[in-house]
Structure formats: structure tokens, C-alpha cells
């Protein structure tokens, strides 16, 4: 929960691709939560087949619910709307596109890719 212990070793150890689940476990335009080490990740399979990964924690409510929001789009950006207070985030960058009048906050994002029917995360570093 604490943000004070962002571990430096994670930046220096270098990221590696880590398998999380199979693509079939995901549903188009609806998120699923995943547990990687002790981190809660939200995974999204978009209608064009891309997989996106963000932190599952909603920065506005501190609840781990991002995977349970509605996937959509804003102009070119694929988006996720938090189910708690409806803030909308860009799934590519994690930046908040509609803060509902709150201060801007960001979702952490990870690089995700699919390969041979499996979903991989570039793990060890958040972009």
C-alpha cells in the first residue's frame, strides 16, 4: 500500500517478458485482474486484438477495481472507465482523460503482448 518503498532494484534488474495467462482467458472489451508477484494488474483485450495492461488500483478510490470498468474509446484512445467514480483513463498511457473534476492522476501501465495464444507482460518496470 505504501508508495515510499519503490524499490530501486526493480529498475536496475531489467525487465523480462513474463507469461500471465492465455488470450482465451480474456474477453474482448472487458477487463480481467491478474496477480503478478504481489502486484494486481488489470488486463484488457481490445476489439483489434491488442492486449493492454494497467495497475488494477483505481487512484481515485484506492480500490482494486479498474479491471471491472467499461472499456471504450475517446477519439483514437482506447479507454477504461473506473467503475467506482467514473474517471476515464487512456489504456495506452494510463493518463486520465476525464478526472470528473478531481486532480489529475495516472494509472500505471505495463507493456503487454500476445504470442502463441498467450499473454505476456514486460515485467520489472512500469512505463
Amino acid at each position: 500500500m505504501s508508495t515510499q518503498t519503490l524499490d530501486r532494484t526493480t529498475t536496475t534488474a531489467g525487465p523480462t517478458w513474463r507469461r500471465v495467462c492465455s488470450v482465451d482467458d480474456l474477453e474482448v472489451e472487458r477487463g480481467r485482474a491478474a496477480l503478478v508477484d504481489h502486484a494486481q494488474i488489470a488486463l484488457f483485450l481490445l476489439s483489434d486484438g491488442t492486449v493492454r495492461a494497467t495497475c488494477n488500483r483505481d487512484p481515485y478510490s484506492s480500490a482494486y477495481v479498474i479491471s471491472r470498468g467499461i472499456v471504450g474509446s475517446r477519439e483514437d484512445a482506447p479507454t477504461i472507465a473506473s467503475p467506482m467514480y467514473k474517471q476515464v483513463f487512456d489504456l495506452r498511457t494510463g493518463s486520465c482523460l476525464d478526472t470528473q473534476g478531481k486532480d489529475p492522476a495516472r494509472l500505471r501501465t505495463w507493456q503487454a503482448r500476445r504470442s502463441d495464444g498467450d499473454v505476456y507482460l514486460l515485467w520489472g518496470r512500469a512505463s
Binding site: 519503490l6 529498475t11 489529475p104 518496470r125
Partner: peptide, 16 residues
């Protein structure tokens, strides 16, 4: 608390 994700950034080390 001010927006936590600012300091959640991997480029930042925060020591309180």
C-alpha cells in the same frame, strides 16, 4: 493525500 500515482512513477524514489 495528494494524488499518489505521481510518486508511483518508476523514475521517482520517495523517502519520507
Amino acid at each position: 493525500t495528494l494524488e499518489r500515482s505521481v510518486l508511483d512513477d518508476a523514475r521517482v524514489r520517495f523517502v519520507a
